[in-house]
């Protein structure tokens, strides 16, 4: 059996492709569902306020919510231009 395997072109099985795809999508979706729905809107509104005073890109404002057992930390990371 092993001997003949040597001559076969080694294609990854479709099951392992399925597993790999699932691991990626599931990890991604778990991350995004953990965030409350208002975060994108919060980010947008912060951006609107800041851009009244400073020229800023959308990517320069990062909003992240980290949950610990007893409390949640809302982390704002705003990169102002030089």
């Amino acid at each position: 059996m092993r001997f003949w395997d040597y001559f076969r072109t080694s294609k990854p099985s479709t099951a392992s492709m399925a597993k790999e795809r699932l691991q990626i999508i599931v990890a991604h979706e778990r991350g995004s569902h953990a965030q409350p729905d208002y975060l994108p809107k919060l980010q947008q509104e912060l951006l609107d306020v800041i851009s009244k005073y400073v020229q800023i890109n959308r990517d320069d404002v990062q909003v992240q919510l980290d949950r610990n057992d007893s409390c949640a930390v809302l982390e704002l990371n705003i990169t102002l231009p030089e």
């Binding site: 099985s13 479709t14 099951a15 392992s16 399925a18 597993k19 699932l22």
Partner: peptide, 16 residues
Amino acid sequence: RVKRGEMLSVQDVEEI
């Protein structure tokens, strides 16, 4: 089908 690599195994699904 699992043996032929055509279907996710129990271990695969448990792991995910």
